[in-house]
């Protein structure tokens, strides 16, 4: 991948990541208050798709990161390097938790048993809160690393 293409993909990755994080956060109050509403389901689905797209763009950037950035990042500041590694772990969790929230939400919608609906809603809430929290932490960490690395001309 050419440096210009890497730059373009990195920009798109950052923008989609913040959009996905915003969608996950917007879905939270709807999920905590409303029950069986189509809007909640639509926003959750959009958030899950957006965060998966973010992950796919991130996977595209993995090879250029390893070959061009990682060594310089750790050489400049190991703390900054480890912050970026931490962000990768949290992002992986955020993607899977977004899908877990969506699937439990859909399961609760189609379930016929009131007790099971309650349990599934509780699980969806836990997954959505965790996904939004991890996505926000990952987005903030990535922004910090990007800003500090830019200052150091990496």
């Amino acid at each position: 991948m050419s440096p210009a293409a890497v730059h373009l993909v990195a920009r798109a990755h950052a923008v989609v990541a913040w959009v996905a994080t915003a969608a996950l956060i917007v879905a939270l109050p709807l999920l905590l208050v409303a029950r069986r509403r189509r809007t909640t389901l639509a926003i959750s689905a959009a958030a899950a798709l957006a965060i998966t797209l973010t992950g796919a763009l991130g996977a595209l950037l993995d090879a250029p990161y390893r070959s061009r950035i990682r060594q310089h990042l750790f050489g400049q500041s190991p703390a900054l390097g480890w912050l970026f590694e931490r962000k990768e772990h949290l992002a992986f969790g955020a993607i899977l938790l977004a899908w877990a929230a969506l699937s439990t939400l859909v399961a609760a919608r189609i379930s016929r048993d009131p007790a099971r609906v309650g349990d599934l809603h509780a699980a969806a809430r836990v997954a959505a809160i965790a996904s939004a929290g991890l996505a926000l932490a990952a987005a903030v960490m990535a922004t910090i690393v990007a800003q500090l690395a830019r200052m150091a001309h990496l």
Partner: peptide, 23 residues
């Protein structure tokens, strides 16, 4: 308590898989 539908079970399985993968 009624038995869950197949679609419901698949969705619960997907959520279980996601949580297991994270762990």
């Amino acid at each position: 308590m009624s038995a869950p539908r197949k679609t419901e079970r698949i969705l619960i399985a997907a959520a279980t898989g996601a949580a297991t993968a994270i762990f």
